[in-house]
Nucleic acid binder design. Structure first.
Lengths: 112, 112
DNA sequence: ACATCATATCAATATTTTATCATATGTCAA
DNA sequence: TTGACATATGATAAAATATTGATATGATGT
Protein backbone atom coordinates (compact mmCIF):
# COMPACT_ATOMS: atom_id res chain seq x y z
CA UNK A 1 0.00 0.00 0.00
CA UNK A 2 2.81 2.38 0.86
CA UNK A 3 4.85 1.30 -2.13
CA UNK A 4 1.75 1.50 -4.27
CA UNK A 5 1.41 5.07 -3.12
CA UNK A 6 4.93 5.97 -4.16
CA UNK A 7 4.38 4.29 -7.49
CA UNK A 8 1.26 6.37 -7.93
CA UNK A 9 3.22 9.56 -7.40
CA UNK A 10 5.49 8.43 -10.17
CA UNK A 11 2.64 7.47 -12.46
CA UNK A 12 1.11 10.91 -12.07
CA UNK A 13 4.48 12.53 -12.68
CA UNK A 14 4.76 10.74 -15.98
CA UNK A 15 1.27 11.79 -16.98
CA UNK A 16 1.71 15.39 -15.85
CA UNK A 17 3.45 16.56 -18.97
CA UNK A 18 1.78 18.08 -21.97
CA UNK A 19 3.90 16.30 -24.55
CA UNK A 20 3.68 12.90 -22.93
CA UNK A 21 -0.06 13.18 -22.50
CA UNK A 22 -0.46 14.40 -26.07
CA UNK A 23 1.47 11.37 -27.29
CA UNK A 24 -0.79 9.06 -25.34
CA UNK A 25 -3.94 10.72 -26.60
CA UNK A 26 -2.65 10.59 -30.16
CA UNK A 27 -1.82 6.91 -29.91
CA UNK A 28 -5.24 6.18 -28.47
CA UNK A 29 -6.65 7.26 -31.83
CA UNK A 30 -4.31 4.99 -33.72
CA UNK A 31 -0.87 3.35 -33.37
CA UNK A 32 1.89 5.34 -35.03
CA UNK A 33 5.62 5.62 -35.48
CA UNK A 34 7.67 8.48 -34.11
CA UNK A 35 7.45 10.74 -37.13
CA UNK A 36 3.72 10.38 -37.45
CA UNK A 37 3.38 11.31 -33.80
CA UNK A 38 5.60 14.33 -34.40
CA UNK A 39 3.31 15.59 -37.12
CA UNK A 40 0.18 14.85 -35.15
CA UNK A 41 1.23 16.73 -32.05
CA UNK A 42 3.63 19.16 -33.70
CA UNK A 43 6.79 18.38 -31.78
CA UNK A 44 10.39 17.66 -32.73
CA UNK A 45 11.45 14.07 -33.22
CA UNK A 46 14.17 13.89 -30.55
CA UNK A 47 11.74 15.25 -28.05
CA UNK A 48 9.08 12.71 -28.92
CA UNK A 49 11.59 9.85 -28.82
CA UNK A 50 12.68 11.01 -25.42
CA UNK A 51 9.17 10.93 -24.07
CA UNK A 52 8.31 7.66 -25.79
CA UNK A 53 11.19 6.09 -23.94
CA UNK A 54 9.78 7.34 -20.69
CA UNK A 55 6.30 6.13 -21.54
CA UNK A 56 7.61 2.73 -22.60
CA UNK A 57 9.64 2.18 -19.44
CA UNK A 58 6.54 3.00 -17.41
CA UNK A 59 4.29 0.65 -19.33
CA UNK A 60 2.11 3.28 -20.92
CA UNK A 61 3.10 2.40 -24.45
CA UNK A 62 4.68 -0.56 -26.14
CA UNK A 63 6.45 -0.84 -29.43
CA UNK A 64 6.90 -3.23 -32.29
CA UNK A 65 9.18 -2.93 -35.24
CA UNK A 66 7.59 -3.12 -38.66
CA UNK A 67 10.36 -3.05 -41.23
CA UNK A 68 12.10 0.27 -40.97
CA UNK A 69 9.58 1.77 -38.64
CA UNK A 70 8.81 1.23 -34.99
CA UNK A 71 5.12 1.37 -34.26
CA UNK A 72 3.98 2.53 -30.86
CA UNK A 73 0.73 1.52 -29.23
CA UNK A 74 -0.79 2.75 -26.01
CA UNK A 75 -1.60 0.41 -23.17
CA UNK A 76 -5.31 1.08 -23.32
CA UNK A 77 -6.20 -1.22 -20.45
CA UNK A 78 -4.70 0.91 -17.76
CA UNK A 79 -4.46 4.29 -19.45
CA UNK A 80 -8.08 4.71 -20.42
CA UNK A 81 -9.51 4.43 -16.91
CA UNK A 82 -6.96 6.89 -15.56
CA UNK A 83 -7.68 9.47 -18.22
CA UNK A 84 -11.41 9.06 -17.94
CA UNK A 85 -11.31 9.50 -14.19
CA UNK A 86 -9.26 12.66 -14.68
CA UNK A 87 -11.73 13.88 -17.29
CA UNK A 88 -14.51 13.52 -14.77
CA UNK A 89 -12.68 15.74 -12.32
CA UNK A 90 -11.77 18.16 -15.09
CA UNK A 91 -15.38 18.50 -16.15
CA UNK A 92 -16.43 19.54 -12.67
CA UNK A 93 -13.43 21.53 -11.47
CA UNK A 94 -11.77 22.59 -14.70
CA UNK A 95 -13.21 26.06 -14.49
CA UNK A 96 -11.95 26.45 -10.93
CA UNK A 97 -8.45 25.81 -12.18
CA UNK A 98 -8.75 27.92 -15.30
CA UNK A 99 -5.65 29.96 -15.90
CA UNK A 100 -3.44 27.56 -14.01
CA UNK A 101 -0.75 26.34 -16.33
CA UNK A 102 1.88 25.87 -13.69
CA UNK A 103 1.57 24.93 -10.07
CA UNK A 104 2.97 28.32 -9.13
CA UNK A 105 -0.09 29.94 -10.71
CA UNK A 106 -2.01 28.78 -7.69
CA UNK A 107 -0.16 31.32 -5.59
CA UNK A 108 -1.71 34.03 -7.71
CA UNK A 109 -5.21 32.86 -6.88
CA UNK A 110 -5.78 34.58 -3.58
CA UNK A 111 -9.44 33.83 -3.12
CA UNK A 112 -10.63 30.56 -1.77
CA UNK B 1 -11.48 18.12 -25.57
CA UNK B 2 -8.28 20.10 -25.99
CA UNK B 3 -8.94 22.17 -22.91
CA UNK B 4 -9.87 19.03 -21.03
CA UNK B 5 -6.50 17.69 -22.01
CA UNK B 6 -4.65 20.68 -20.62
CA UNK B 7 -6.66 20.48 -17.46
CA UNK B 8 -5.70 16.84 -17.16
CA UNK B 9 -2.03 17.73 -17.32
CA UNK B 10 -2.62 20.06 -14.44
CA UNK B 11 -4.62 17.52 -12.47
CA UNK B 12 -1.82 15.00 -12.78
CA UNK B 13 0.71 17.63 -11.75
CA UNK B 14 -1.18 18.25 -8.58
CA UNK B 15 -1.35 14.55 -7.80
CA UNK B 16 2.28 13.91 -8.68
CA UNK B 17 3.67 14.95 -5.35
CA UNK B 18 4.31 12.72 -2.39
CA UNK B 19 3.07 15.15 0.23
CA UNK B 20 -0.09 16.11 -1.61
CA UNK B 21 -0.95 12.51 -2.32
CA UNK B 22 -0.22 11.55 1.28
CA UNK B 23 -2.58 14.28 2.45
CA UNK B 24 -5.32 12.98 0.19
CA UNK B 25 -4.84 9.40 1.29
CA UNK B 26 -4.85 10.47 4.94
CA UNK B 27 -8.05 12.43 4.50
CA UNK B 28 -9.69 9.49 2.77
CA UNK B 29 -9.38 7.63 6.05
CA UNK B 30 -10.96 10.45 7.99
CA UNK B 31 -11.40 14.24 7.79
CA UNK B 32 -8.81 16.13 9.80
CA UNK B 33 -7.45 19.56 10.55
CA UNK B 34 -3.98 20.71 9.54
CA UNK B 35 -2.17 19.64 12.67
CA UNK B 36 -3.67 16.18 12.66
CA UNK B 37 -2.58 15.77 9.06
CA UNK B 38 0.91 16.90 10.01
CA UNK B 39 1.16 14.20 12.63
CA UNK B 40 -0.34 11.55 10.39
CA UNK B 41 2.04 12.13 7.51
CA UNK B 42 4.93 13.56 9.48
CA UNK B 43 5.32 16.90 7.77
CA UNK B 44 5.65 20.49 8.94
CA UNK B 45 2.53 22.61 9.28
CA UNK B 46 3.43 25.37 6.81
CA UNK B 47 4.21 22.77 4.23
CA UNK B 48 0.90 21.01 4.73
CA UNK B 49 -1.01 24.30 4.66
CA UNK B 50 0.64 25.17 1.37
CA UNK B 51 -0.37 21.91 -0.20
CA UNK B 52 -3.87 22.02 1.23
CA UNK B 53 -4.34 25.36 -0.47
CA UNK B 54 -3.28 23.81 -3.73
CA UNK B 55 -5.56 20.85 -3.25
CA UNK B 56 -8.46 23.10 -2.31
CA UNK B 57 -8.08 25.37 -5.33
CA UNK B 58 -8.08 22.29 -7.53
CA UNK B 59 -11.16 20.80 -5.96
CA UNK B 60 -9.49 17.82 -4.38
CA UNK B 61 -10.34 18.83 -0.84
CA UNK B 62 -12.78 21.17 0.77
CA UNK B 63 -12.78 22.73 4.19
CA UNK B 64 -15.13 23.77 6.90
CA UNK B 65 -14.37 25.73 10.02
CA UNK B 66 -15.32 24.13 13.31
CA UNK B 67 -14.55 26.61 16.05
CA UNK B 68 -10.85 27.18 16.12
CA UNK B 69 -10.09 24.39 13.76
CA UNK B 70 -10.54 23.99 10.04
CA UNK B 71 -11.52 20.50 9.04
CA UNK B 72 -10.49 19.26 5.62
CA UNK B 73 -12.31 16.59 3.67
CA UNK B 74 -11.34 14.94 0.43
CA UNK B 75 -13.55 15.07 -2.60
CA UNK B 76 -14.07 11.34 -2.72
CA UNK B 77 -16.28 11.37 -5.80
CA UNK B 78 -13.58 12.28 -8.23
CA UNK B 79 -10.44 11.35 -6.31
CA UNK B 80 -11.24 7.75 -5.61
CA UNK B 81 -11.64 6.68 -9.24
CA UNK B 82 -8.41 8.41 -10.22
CA UNK B 83 -6.41 6.75 -7.47
CA UNK B 84 -7.94 3.36 -8.11
CA UNK B 85 -7.18 3.56 -11.80
CA UNK B 86 -3.60 4.47 -10.95
CA UNK B 87 -3.42 1.58 -8.49
CA UNK B 88 -4.38 -0.77 -11.27
CA UNK B 89 -1.52 0.42 -13.42
CA UNK B 90 0.80 0.34 -10.42
CA UNK B 91 -0.10 -3.27 -9.68
CA UNK B 92 0.88 -4.35 -13.17
CA UNK B 93 3.81 -2.07 -13.96
CA UNK B 94 5.00 -1.05 -10.53
CA UNK B 95 7.86 -3.52 -10.63
CA UNK B 96 8.96 -2.21 -14.00
CA UNK B 97 9.26 1.24 -12.50
CA UNK B 98 10.79 0.08 -9.26
CA UNK B 99 13.68 2.29 -8.32
CA UNK B 100 12.30 5.25 -10.22
CA UNK B 101 11.78 8.04 -7.75
CA UNK B 102 12.46 10.81 -10.17
CA UNK B 103 11.83 11.04 -13.86
CA UNK B 104 15.55 11.30 -14.44
CA UNK B 105 15.92 7.80 -13.05
CA UNK B 106 14.47 6.61 -16.32
CA UNK B 107 17.63 7.73 -18.05
CA UNK B 108 19.50 5.19 -15.96
CA UNK B 109 17.32 2.36 -17.22
CA UNK B 110 19.04 1.58 -20.49
CA UNK B 111 17.24 -1.59 -21.43
CA UNK B 112 13.88 -1.51 -23.09
C1' DA C 1 29.47 -2.57 -47.85
C1' DC C 2 26.98 1.71 -48.78
C1' DA C 3 23.48 5.03 -48.73
C1' DT C 4 19.38 6.26 -46.62
C1' DC C 5 15.85 6.72 -43.61
C1' DA C 6 14.20 6.14 -38.82
C1' DT C 7 15.05 6.55 -34.21
C1' DA C 8 17.76 7.29 -29.92
C1' DT C 9 21.13 9.50 -26.97
C1' DC C 10 23.69 13.22 -24.83
C1' DA C 11 24.61 17.33 -22.68
C1' DA C 12 23.85 22.09 -21.66
C1' DT C 13 20.61 25.46 -20.28
C1' DA C 14 16.12 27.37 -19.00
C1' DT C 15 12.11 26.80 -16.40
C1' DT C 16 9.33 24.97 -12.86
C1' DT C 17 8.69 22.83 -8.51
C1' DT C 18 9.88 21.75 -3.85
C1' DA C 19 11.36 22.86 0.64
C1' DT C 20 12.09 25.87 4.47
C1' DC C 21 11.65 29.42 7.74
C1' DA C 22 10.11 33.59 9.62
C1' DT C 23 6.14 35.94 10.19
C1' DA C 24 1.25 37.23 9.65
C1' DT C 25 -3.60 36.42 10.34
C1' DG C 26 -7.49 34.70 12.60
C1' DT C 27 -10.29 32.64 16.40
C1' DC C 28 -11.57 31.87 20.85
C1' DA C 29 -11.79 32.29 25.92
C1' DA C 30 -10.77 34.64 30.08
C1' DT D 1 -7.78 43.25 24.96
C1' DT D 2 -4.62 39.86 26.01
C1' DG D 3 -2.85 35.22 25.66
C1' DA D 4 -2.88 30.95 23.51
C1' DC D 5 -3.64 28.19 19.94
C1' DA D 6 -4.60 27.20 14.92
C1' DT D 7 -3.69 28.19 10.38
C1' DA D 8 -1.99 30.84 6.33
C1' DT D 9 1.33 33.55 3.70
C1' DG D 10 5.59 35.17 1.50
C1' DA D 11 10.23 35.14 0.22
C1' DT D 12 13.92 32.52 -1.34
C1' DA D 13 17.33 28.75 -1.79
C1' DA D 14 17.73 24.21 -3.56
C1' DA D 15 16.34 20.49 -6.46
C1' DA D 16 14.00 18.39 -10.24
C1' DT D 17 12.21 18.67 -14.77
C1' DA D 18 11.66 20.45 -19.48
C1' DT D 19 13.69 21.95 -23.61
C1' DT D 20 16.82 22.04 -27.29
C1' DG D 21 19.98 20.91 -30.84
C1' DA D 22 23.79 18.36 -32.31
C1' DT D 23 25.13 13.92 -32.97
C1' DA D 24 25.07 8.81 -32.63
C1' DT D 25 23.05 4.39 -33.50
C1' DG D 26 20.39 1.09 -35.93
C1' DA D 27 17.91 -1.24 -39.63
C1' DT D 28 16.88 -1.72 -44.45
C1' DG D 29 17.24 -2.29 -49.30
C1' DT D 30 20.50 -2.19 -53.11
Amino acid sequence: MQSENNTNVFIFKVLSNEVRLAIIEALLKKPMNVNEICEEINEEQPRVSHELRCLAVCGFVYSEREGKRIIYEPNKDTITPIIEAANKHARIFGSKMRGCEMLSDIRKMTSR
